[in-house]
């Protein structure tokens, strides 16, 4: 207990009289799609990254930029350092198999700015087997979600500190959230078939 108090520069008496602090700020109004997208693109242009975006999408009010795997790291760096997107709200994969798009997988980084209360999405478009650079140096929160994408889609991340399966067992074969992974493809182990199951 003592070491943390020292770390915070507190004495025992400070802790005894903690006051409640409230945040009663007025409700914030996030910027419109155009405003958010333009502000973000301005910073991107300042960093000399214009022309690297391959697609822009309006995800019901959230601007979404698709970039190649080579540029995603620098885009995220601009988002965090210049535009104030300090929270990685979510990071997940999408398998575009049925869309017949030019790419197979997407790694979606959904970013949130606590100060401005707006969101922006940066997504990396990947071919089958293409390696994505990790975002964990910029957003350390992406360590686990990237492990989940590796587990569920088989997308590999270069430079990732701990790339292992996270939800499925270590000896699992296949990547369940791929669109070509069958639903109910696993035979359930019962007492009548436990021998055959174990032999497999």
């Amino acid at each position: 207990m003592v070491d943390a108090d020292v770390r915070l520069g507190l004495s025992g008496s400070d802790l005894a009289i903690r006051d409640k602090t409230f945040h009663s700020a007025l409700t914030m109004t996030p910027g419109t799609l155009e405003a958010v997208a333009h502000r973000f693109l301005d910073s991107i242009a300042e960093s000399g990254l214009q022309g690297t975006v391959t697609d822009f999408q309006d995800c019901n009010g959230i601007p979404s930029f698709t970039v190649g795997a080579a540029h995603v790291e620098s885009w995220l760096k601009v988002a965090k350092d210049h535009c104030g997107y300090d929270l990685l709200s979510d990071c997940f994969g999408v398998d575009r198999l049925a869309f017949k798009a030019a790419h197979r997988f997407e790694v979606v980084y959904s970013l949130y700015s606590i100060e401005k209360a707006d969101r922006v999405i940066v997504r990396a478009a990947l071919q089958f087997g293409e390696v994505c650079p990790t975002a964990s140096a910029i957003y350390p929160a992406s360590v686990w979600p990237e492990r989940e994408i590796y587990d569920m889609f088989g997308v590999e991340f270069s430079g990732h500190p701990d790339l292992r399966r996270i939800l499925m067992p270590d000896d699992w074969v296949g990547h369940p959230l791929r669109k070509d992974f069958p639903l109910g493809g696993e035979e359930v182990e019962f007492s009548h078939n436990v021998r055959e199951q174990e032999a497999k």
Partner: peptide, 24 residues
């Protein structure tokens, strides 16, 4: 950071409430 305040949904902006924030 509280989504009920920052990005209100379902009409949360019409209710009066505070969000508690810690110190340590």
């Amino acid at each position: 950071f509280d989504l009920r305040k920052s990005n209100p949904y379902s009409g949360y902006e019409q209710y009066e409430f505070d969000i508690a924030v810690g110190q340590y």
